[in-house]
Write a protein that binds this DNA or RNA. Structure first.
Length: 429
RNA sequence: GGAAGGGUGGCAGAGUUGGUCGAAUGCACCGGUCUUGAAAACCGGCAAGGGGCAACCCUUCGUGGGUUCGAAUCCCACCCCUUCCGCCA
């Protein structure tokens, strides 16, 4: 969430920044407008309450002293009954005001970093650079390649669970598993990340810490009998590994990688990417998570993005890096680079990794802090990015490795992870 | 799921006949004395959040509620941990 002090102090600047990303900061009912009101109200009430509490504490102490000396304190005690009553009533009001304030604060997105380009939507995103040579010949879509090879089974997925679920068979399954291992090994061995393995179900507080709640409940699968959710990304559990902790400065930066399954309801994307396994309700992903000092966040974002790029380079998959404009970055993000891999069947680049700096936004929400040079705790900066989405990577491998005879070549770097095989051949019937 | 025990500051660990307890003590950590240096010893400091220019005030002893002038201490509910039993991959 945004910083409360900064909210008061730099109200106009923050408002302008939020407007850049398209957030409603003028509407009467916008969280932004409400926050301003509630902030004042909460503090006024609180000051009133504290005055009463101070009085109560003072006299109560006095009563204790008198009683200890055997004196009579009936008069004071009687007088305090009224104060106690008013204190209790006011305390309720303060709690309400506080709750109201924080509930709107949690709905205000992260103001984009000043360096983020202007723009309303993805059409204003800026391409930064390209890597590799995209093949320009005609290639069938991955679902046809996969079906022909007998490694992707969408019918089975639909039968078992519904649309947007896929069953992988044989080399398809093995590739999925191999990619997972390959990516983790790369990040652990080359990028000095600490691998972690975490729960795929988390509670409400954890989901709130990274910003998925309260605003995006519709995108999440919620457990019926518990106040818990399936994770939409490893970002959630891995970042929250440090919730409510105060880290020492020399512990930073912290770099993690983690494999998890991810679950998304895709509520708002009906009709998009309905075929194939580009957009699934369940998919596998290796995620990169960094915790760092706020003034290093942007440098670290370069580092993290580089780690994600290394995966695509090692696999020889052509891609480009784009920077999202202010109108296209995610709710919690301050600045985002997307990696888009070349999909020859669509003759276009498709997102395969999204690398973001969140500044101190998540650190504040999740209570992740570190001691700066003065010894004072302050929120850490968090970053994360896919390194990379495994399902989409498999898609890219199938299409980019496809041969005219129907087989698919497997990149050298991946071969040790799939039993040394260098290609997937059509089943000979 | 059943039974028992427990949740206190970075850690360990006192505190449960309610009162001067944000909380003894030890360790860790920081500063100082001493020392060629270090260690030891000794002295001092050392929770977080909020408000205030400041003095200082308020909140927090798993969470929420209750009793009371006053609760870490009493009552209720919930959560979590440990052990034992049951069940189970």
């Amino acid at each position: 969430m945004i910083d409360r002090r900064e909210f008061r102090k730099s109200f106009d600047d923050m408002q302008a920044a939020l407007a850049r990303r398209g957030a409603d900061v003028v509407g009467e009912d916008s969280p932004w407008s409400k926050a301003r009101e509630l902030d004042v109200r909460q503090r006024d009430l609180k000051m009133e309450l504290e005055t009463l509490q101070a009085e109560r504490n003072r006299v109560s102490k006095l009563i204790g002293q008198k009683k200890a000396q055997g004196e009579d304190a009936a008069e004071e005690m009687a007088a305090m009954q009224d104060v106690a009553r008013r204190t209790k009533a006011l305390d309720g009001e303060v709690k309400e005001a506080e709750e109201a304030f924080y509930s709107v604060l949690l709905e205000i997105p992260n103001p984009p970093h000043a360096s983020v380009p202007d723009g309303k939507d993805e059409s204003a995103n800026v391409e930064l650079h390209r890597w590799g040579n995209p093949r320009q010949d005609s290639v069938p879509p991955h679902w046809e390649i996969g079906a022909a090879l007998g490694i992707l089974d969408f019918e089975a997925g639909a039968t078992l669970a519904g649309s947007r679920f896929t069953v992988l068979r044989g080399m398809g399954s093995r590739l999925e598993r191999g990619l997972m291992q390959f990516m983790l090994d790369l990040h652990v061995d080359q990028h000095a990340c600490e691998e972690v393995w975490v729960p795929a179900i988390v509670n409400r507080k954890t989901m709130t810490g990274t910003g998925q709640l309260p605003k995006f409940a519709d995108d999440l699968y919620k457990l019926e009998d518990e106040d818990a959710f399936l994770i939409p990304t490893a970002e959630v559990p891995v970042t929250n590994l440090y919730q409510d902790m105060i880290l020492e400065a020399d512990a930073l930066p912290i770099r993690h990688c983690a494999y998890t399954p991810c679950f998304r309801r895709e509520a708002g994307s009906a009709g998009r990417d309905v075929r194939g396994m580009i957009r699934q309700h369940q998919f596998d992903k290796v995620e990169l998570v960094h915790l760092t000092q706020p003034d290093r966040a942007l440098d670290d974002l370069q580092t993290l993005t580089g780690h994600a790029e290394a995966v695509l380079q090692a696999l020889g998959l052509p891609y480009r890096v784009i920077e999202l404009c202010a109108g296209d970055i995610g709710f919690s993000a301050q600045k985002t680079f997307d990696l888009e891999v070349w999909l020859p069947s669509q003759n276009t680049y498709r997102e395969i990794s999204s690398c973001s700096s969140f500044g101190q936004f998540q650190g504040r929400r999740a209570g992740i802090r570190y001691r700066d040079e003065s010894g004072k705790p302050q929120a850490v900066a968090t970053l994360n990015g896919s390194g990379v989405a495994i399902g989409r990577c498999l898609v890219a491998l199938l299409e980019n490795g496809w041969q005219a005879d129907g087989s698919v070549l497997i990149p050298d770097a991946l071969q040790p992870y799939v039993g040394g095989k260098s290609r997937i051949d059509l089943a000979v019937c």
